[in-house]
């Protein structure tokens, strides 16, 4: 019989996400998947799943859960209080959740997106090759919706339940957020570029899985704020007429009509997404060549963290 994970209390923006839905951007289908890909992959690896398995993503606040068989669980993304049967356990480690016992996950500190992976993964049907939820179009996930109190999720078959912990630390810097200029960098004059790179910007509460609106000095596109719509990618920085940059995220639309001053370097997407609302940061422009080097380096680093997981004692 299929094991079930029951949600007794759900945070406000909780959804099923895997590593994303690929191959359909030309048909208007967003990639979706975890906003913080690394944290999602590490959570899965900690419970013995494939890095791309379907897990639960939550924003700011977790919830409470139980399973009807023994499972391993891991919470990553940031740090938050986690309790099993009322006893605190650490994030970024896997723990046994005995059948029928309660897992509670509190509020993230200093981060926005959290992940709960369960051994066996969430075994809902795939839609267009992925279990990820695209909330705006109601695609994938559990009926295309955010998870709610009372929902039950089927779990896949799990291997041996061996709790693990990180052997190689996974750290994130506080350096400026790297961007690659373009595709419409030439819509902005030297003055606008100076502003963009020398003034701090702030994350705001206007953020979800589709996009985040930034606050800071307005950017004027001297060639205008309308282009003939072209493709966007995850990390595109659109500049609408308000001059306030909008960074597209995992669920972002696939095309758009605003000029895009730059693209967030892929290895810094999660670092930006995890900045708490209201936090100031700076942008730093790097070449596409260097961004590729650093992207490959970041992939290798993630592989080292996952490869370096070790048995947790006690």
């Amino acid at each position: 019989m299929t094991a079930i994970l029951s949600i007794h209390r759900a945070g406000p923006l909780m959804s099923v996400q895997d590593s994303g839905r690929y191959g359909y951007r030309s048909r208007g289908v967003s990639t979706s998947g975890a906003v913080d890909r690394d944290a999602h992959a590490i959570a899965n690896a900690l419970v013995g799943n494939e890095p791309g398995a379907a897990a639960i993503e939550f924003a700011l606040i977790g919830g409470s859960f139980s399973a009807d068989r023994d499972v391993l669980i891991a919470v990553t993304g940031g740090n938050c209080p986690v309790e099993i049967s009322g006893k605190p356990v650490h994030t970024w480690e896997s723990h046994l959740l005995p059948a029928g016992e309660t897992l509670t996950i509190g509020a993230l500190r200093g981060a926005v997106w959290g992940y709960l992976a369960i051994s066996g993964g969430i075994a809902i049907p795939e839609v267009l090759g992925s279990r990820s939820t695209h909330l705006r179009t109601g695609l994938g996930g559990l009926d295309g919706k955010t998870l709610a109190t009372g929902d039950n999720l089927p779990l896949g078959e799990a291997g041996k339940l061996k709790p693990k912990t990180l052997g190689v630390p996974y750290l994130r810097s506080h350096a400026p957020i790297c961007i690659v200029p373009g595709p419409q960098d030439d819509y902005f004059d030297e003055e606008a570029w100076k502003t963009f790179l020398r003034q701090p910007y702030r994350t705001t509460a206007s953020r979800d899985r589709m996009a985040m609106v930034l606050d800071g000095p307005a950017l004027k596109a001297f060639k205008g704020h309308d282009i003939v719509s072209d493709a966007t990618v995850v990390g595109s920085i659109q500049v609408p007429g308000s001059g306030k940059p909008i960074v597209l995220s995992a669920d972002g639309q696939t095309t758009g009509g605003y000029p895009k001053i730059a693209t967030i370097a892929s290895f810094d997407l999660a670092r930006l997404a995890q900045l708490p609302s209201g936090q100031e940061f700076m942008f730093r422009a790097i070449s596409a060549d260097m961004a590729e080097e650093l992207a490959i380096h970041a992939e290798d680093r993630l592989a080292a963290v996952i490869g370096g997981l070790k048995k947790r004692k006690g």
Partner: peptide, 17 residues
């Protein structure tokens, strides 16, 4: 050629419809 970060690149044939 237009650059769209480190995982995408574009080739543009016009700026008009």
């Amino acid at each position: 050629i237009i650059r769209c970060g480190d995982r995408a690149i574009g080739i543009e044939f016009s700026d008009q419809v």
